[in-house]
């Protein structure tokens, strides 16, 4: 049996999840220019909100997902409003912002562990067999198909917003030059808060999808950050298109890589790619060398 179609399918699914992470990560990085660890916790918050509403309280799945996305977005917004905006106004260095983000990330993760225990949890029901589809010799579940479609839709929507709307152009202006954006009349603090909210919603959604596809546990954030950061750096950090490309590239390299390498080396592949790019092409595929 030719396993190539299945590996392609696995790559696309992994890439879709990484793409959502990279989209959110790049949006925020473009505007704030420091490595932010909080998205790791936000993905877990998204997943756990759905788990709490859907699994524990038995609420409707669509409502739970929307709530999960919004809650994650809200926490991201809060992190800007309460912490990062103040650091920006004091002209704190990127290192300080990174350390602050690390603190917030650790705190939120600990909070989730306390509320939900550190056990790994499944989100979707296990009493029914999932509907699976077969295309060209590859098998995938309807959830995986949904993840793929949503990821593409998110990317297209975001690209259109950035390119066509005045909000989107303002976002791009702020990520080019925050000070000049203020001068021409953009309320940059408010805009950046929106950027945090939208980016965090995307990341919360990625956590929800991971929950559906595999499951959730409080420390899932580290994995999210590793894959998201790698995808973003490969594609070109701060570049929305680059992040999307890098995400799928990462998915393909990881899944095709284990054809030859033992499966337990999969996480090492992400690290390896990251280091390769940092050494040879740190600006990523889509960015021009400064």
């Amino acid at each position: 049996m030719n396993i190539i179609p299945q590996i392609v399918a696995n790559s696309l699914i992994a890439g879709s999840i990484y793409a959502l992470i990279a989209l959110g990560f790049n949006l925020v990085y473009g505007a704030t220019r420091f490595v932010n660890m909080v998205p790791g916790a936000l993905a877990a918050i998204g997943g756990y909100t759905v788990f709490f509403l859907f699994n524990r309280l038995g609420l409707n799945i669509y409502f739970s997902v929307i709530a999960g996305v919004v809650v994650a977005g809200f926490f991201g917004y809060l992190s800007d409003r309460l912490v990062f905006r103040k650091l920006r106004s004091h002209k704190a260095s990127n290192l300080v912002s990174f350390v602050a983000s690390l603190g917030i990330f650790t705190m939120l993760q600990a909070l989730i562990s306390i509320l939900f225990t550190s056990q790994f949890q499944s989100v979707l029901s296990v009493t029914e067999n999932p509907k699976t589809y077969q295309i060209l010799g590859a098998t995938f579940t309807w959830v995986q198909g949904l993840i793929f479609i949503t990821s593409i839709a998110a990317f297209v929507s975001l690209a259109l917003i950035l390119k066509k709307t005045s909000f989107g152009k303002a976002v791009r202006a702020v990520s080019d030059d925050e000070e000049v954006s203020k001068i021409i009349g953009i309320n940059t603090n408010r805009l950046i808060s929106w950027i945090f909210f939208i980016g965090s919603c995307l990341i919360g959604l990625s956590g929800i999808f991971i929950g559906f596809d595999i499951g959730i546990n409080p420390t899932m954030g580290l994995f999210i950050i590793l894959e998201g950061a790698t995808a973003s750096i490969i594609g070109g950090i701060g570049n929305v298109y680059g992040g999307f490309l890098g995400a799928f590239l990462l998915g393909f390299v990881e899944n095709f890589g284990i054809l030859k390498i033992p499966g337990e080396w999969k996480p090492a592949i992400a690290f390896g790619l990251l280091i390769l790019f940092l050494i040879f092409k740190p600006e990523g595929i889509m960015n021009k060398k400064k």
Partner: peptide
């Protein structure tokens, strides 16, 4: 009251047209 700060500081990733559009943001 408009300000053109030192060092040109155009929005490098935006096109000329987009720079002007965003100049009319308000």
């Amino acid at each position: 009251l408009a300000f053109v700060p030192q060092g040109r500081r155009v929005f490098t990733h935006l096109t000329i047209e987009e720079n002007l559009e965003v100049g009319g943001f308000v």
